[in-house]
Amino acid sequence: MYHCGDLTPKQRAEWLVSLPTLAWLALFLVIPAALIFVLAFRPADPYGGIGAGWTLETVRALWAPSNLAIAVRTLWISLLTTAVCLVLAVPAGYTIARASEKWRNRLLMLVIVPFWTSFLVRVFAWRSLLHPEGPVKALLQAAGLAGPETTLLYNPAAVVLVMVYTFLPFTILPIYAAAEKFDFRIVEAARDLGARPFQAFRKVFLPGISQGLLTAFLVVFIPALGSYIIPDLVGGPSGEMLGSKIAQRVFTDRNLPHASALSAVLVLAVMAPLVAVLALQRKKKRADIIMGESP
């Protein structure tokens, strides 16, 4: 930190306009983030608060098999959701990018409008659709695909379904944005040179929109890891994820140190893909410079 007298007038003005947000975010973002890691080493008190002294007990308890199972489930549910979203979003983004300008705007609106509803309401809508007396089950039963015993709610599959529903538009938009900038003449050239449609798609189109794919991946995978409402409302005990476990520790067990140890795990899980993507991008940029392409 500089002493005030050492600052040029320009620097002083800069500090003056930056200070309000810096102070606010230090107080309500940086300190809380640090507390997540600190409180994992404090004991709980019986009234739902934080006890005195320090302990390693909570961190050691993280290795319980039940916690491990939840961590693994959180990972595979998030990966599966991301994969399904990408598989659906690539053709959708492609179609929107190739549509005429009038249709492009219409389709984009159609993608965005359902998400003007409250997030909770959308989860609730699925809850009533998948309800034992709801329309989806009636339909499946009529088609002979479900028996009277089948439960559609409260399992990991329901969690994946509702998560795909929630995150799909956020995957379509970056892929559309990348596809819109893509020069489709390259695909036509590849076809003229004898590439089969799928080959041209895989070897030319997908690499061409890699930046959009990467953004789409992060936009789904990171919030998916932290999902809480969806597993809480449609997951049941077999669909529990890290996020719902954290909330349970806070509101049911009233044990903040346990919640903070689990949250610290979640922080690290979220950081991993971010750091990986940043490293990948840096490496790619360096390769581009060596290859003589503009980044």
Binding site: A33, I36, P223, G226, I246, L256, A259, S260, V270
Partner: peptide, 13 residues
């Protein structure tokens, strides 16, 4: 940052 992490951090603070 996932919302739940902001929520729990703020609660603790």
């Amino acid at each position: 940052v996932p919302e739940i992490l902001m929520g729990i951090g703020l609660l603790m603070a």
